[in-house]
Amino acid sequence: MEIPRHWRLKQQRYSLVGEVCPHCDHKIFPPRDICPNCGDEAKELFTFSGKGEVYSYTKIYEAPTGFDANAPYTVALVKLEEGPIITAQLTDLDSTPVEIGMPVEMVTRKMRNDGDERGIIVYGYKFRLRT
């Protein structure tokens, strides 16, 4: 069981809480306390809008342990409106083919079980196509 790890990250996972650099206004996700842009300390919390676009994507047919029940699924690099790129699954896809540049929005979904179905459910961000 990895309860503490998932618990610690809940704000990032549920609501895309990252950081903003007070020195250069650079938006940071995942949070890292040091601004990758100017190198100064950046601990101010910033909640991202969850809007972005597909930067790259691919489909996983053979999933690692813990994700097999959902295969096949699509993972993407999503460029958030505020700047950072994050790795996330795309969900609720229908027959519309995914393309680079498509607008997407964040939703909170089930990611996996921590261990088996007796463990906690890990929830986190995924993205769906924005209509």
Partner: peptide, 9 residues
């Protein structure tokens, strides 16, 4: 609901 949905999501 989809595979990744439940009453919480």
């Amino acid at each position: 609901p989809g595979l990744d949905e439940d009453v919480i999501t």
